[in-house]
């Protein structure tokens, strides 16, 4: 079943900022999915619309078959949200924060207390149950929001930049929690991030969002290998009818019979590629670089992450 299906989603804020310019997205049940993009790409806006915090301008959102426009209760019951910014009552004991949200989801008091105990223990916050939210450390606050998001046992957990600004150790333990939740209960997880490393080591599938548009969408492994290569268009002296096989290069035919497209992985030289082609009897006259927008995108991401950690 499709956990999340987004079609032509548009959001224009009142100040005329086009935060989403018609995005399409599908996430399968049980997936661990990353929405990867730099600051201001529109990640939080997309998450906000899915979780009813932001009104969409147009488009449709369907969550486990429930349409946001016609069955908002169905949509909300399927979703647990961990937002980018802290949004709990800092003056309330965290045990109450959890039981309140359980109550908002229709869970009666006795069961709410049981669940609060279970999820506070699970997120290592049980010792702190009588503390107020503002007395917690940054990592604990984030965990409080995860416990709160899980208390109604949603089919889909959405986390908006769960590890932005937290130190590497906490980030790793957060990754462990999330991996456990995903594998044990089959909870679908969607997280947004601007850390390439996070998407890479945690998620199976990824959509790349930039300036309000999804520019790529697929398995993490595929997208990474695409980014880690250069593609050339070769003009040949003589036309070929089939693409030669020359590992580790990938060769494809083009629409022009005397052209070939070749992927050269990082770390391999262009002259190796020429030699390999020559050994198959293919002679290259000239070549040009095909622009790689993924590479360009990743470079920008990495730059931003570096700035972040400085």
């Amino acid at each position: 079943m499709t956990a999340l299906c987004i079609k032509n989603l548009v959001k224009t804020y009142d100040n005329d900022v086009h935060a989403l310019r018609g995005i399409n997205l599908d996430v399968n049940e049980g997936d661990f999915f990353a929405l990867l993009g730099p600051n201001g790409a529109g990640k939080s806006t997309a998450i906000g619309i899915i979780s009813s915090l932001v009104n969409k301008t147009s488009g449709t959102v369907t969550v486990f078959g429930h349409d946001l426009d016609t069955d908002i209760v169905g949509v909300k019951s399927c979703i647990g949200l961990v937002p980018q910014e802290f949004n709990f009552n800092g003056f309330e004991p965290i045990f109450n924060t959890i039981t309140n949200v359980a109550g908002y989801n229709g869970i009666p008091p006795r069961e709410a207390r049981k669940r609060a105990e279970h999820y506070l223990k699970r997120l290592d916050l049980w010792d702190k149950r009588r503390s107020t939210g503002r007395e917690l450390s940054g990592g604990m606050k984030r965990r409080l929001m995860i416990a709160r998001a899980l208390v109604h046992e949603p089919k889909m957990l959405i986390l908006d930049e769960p590890t932005a600004g937290v130190d590497i150790e906490i980030r790793r333990s957060m990754w462990e929690y999330l991996t456990e939740i995903n594998s044990e209960n089959g909870t679908s997880i969607i997280l947004t991030t601007h850390y390439l490393e996070e998407a890479e080591s945690l998620c199976r599938n990824v959509a790349i969002i930039d300036r309000g548009e999804i520019i790529e969408n697929g398995s993490v492994a595929d997208l990474l290998s695409q980014a880690m290569q250069e593609t050339f268009i070769l003009n040949l002296y003589e036309p070929v009818t089939e693409a030669p096989t020359i590992e580790p290069f990938k060769v494809r035919l083009c629409s022009e019979p005397n052209q070939l497209e070749v992927d050269v992985p990082k770390g391999h030289s262009v002259s190796d590629m020429f030699q390999a082609l020559q050994s198959k009897g293919v002679v290259v006259g000239s070549l040009r670089n095909k622009s790689n927008r993924l590479e360009e995108f990743f470079l920008r991401l990495v730059n931003q992450s570096n700035k972040d950690s400085q």
Binding site: L53, V73, K76, N87, V101, Y104, N105, G106
Partner: peptide, 18 residues
């Protein structure tokens, strides 16, 4: 107003409460 200021009104907005 406090729930708006500290944003925990969002706890209600994301829940299936009418």
């Amino acid at each position: 107003f406090g729930s708006k200021l500290q944003k925990y009104v969002e706890e209600l907005l994301v829940s299936p409460v009418s």
